[in-house]
């Protein structure tokens, strides 16, 4: 396989400069996106604090609001309408939506809602999304994991698992 190298009339000194050029373009693009100003203008959602601070400027435009569902704020009101408060610990925005919440929707979970800020101070949402954190926990009680079976079937990994336990 290595011998196909010898076949084409290709000068290495010429392709070498292509490598440096391409690396320079890639590095410049990467730097432009990361340390350049573009990152500050890419906003997927606003937090409640930013939304409240924006005041009247936020009214009317289609935006996304992200935060946690405040404790005790979930209410089923007027038929299919659902209302709850989105909080980031500092500010809170009341949200009304007619969309059906996903199964994971509950107090304290992260949500991203898409919609518009109304003049009376509530956020009218057409799209409700639940964001799941990066934690995956086995149930503490009830359904017990069969640790022994797991370790038996993956011998090498079992050692590391046992040594990690205090």
């Amino acid at each position: 396989m290595s011998d196909i190298a010898a076949l084409p009339p290709l000068s290495r000194s010429r392709t070498k400069w292509f490598a440096f050029g391409a690396l320079a373009v890639a590095a410049a693009a990467f730097a432009f996106i990361t340390v350049g100003g573009i990152g500050d203008n890419l906003v997927y959602y606003w937090g409640p604090t930013e939304l409240v601070a924006a005041g009247d400027k936020a009214i009317g435009a289609t935006i996304r609001l992200g935060g946690q569902v405040a404790k005790g704020s979930i209410q089923q009101a007027r038929g299919s309408e659902l209302s709850f408060a989105v909080s980031d610990g500092k500010a809170t925005v009341n949200v009304r939506t007619k969309s059906v919440p996903p199964q994971l929707f509950r107090e304290g979970i992260g949500v991203v809602v898409e919609g518009t800020m109304k003049r009376d101070g509530h956020f009218e949402s057409q799209r409700l999304m639940v964001s799941h954190g990066n934690e995956y926990r086995a149930p503490a009680s009830g359904e017990k994991p069969d640790m022994k079976k797991l370790i038996e079937s993956t011998t090498g990994l079992g050692e590391a698992e046992r040594s990690r336990k205090p």
């Binding site: 994971l104 503490a140 797991l150």
Partner: peptide
């Protein structure tokens, strides 16, 4: 096999 039949369910999902 381990993931589908041996590992428990996740608490919320």
């Amino acid at each position: 096999y381990l993931g589908l039949f041996v590992a428990p369910r996740e608490s919320y999902m």
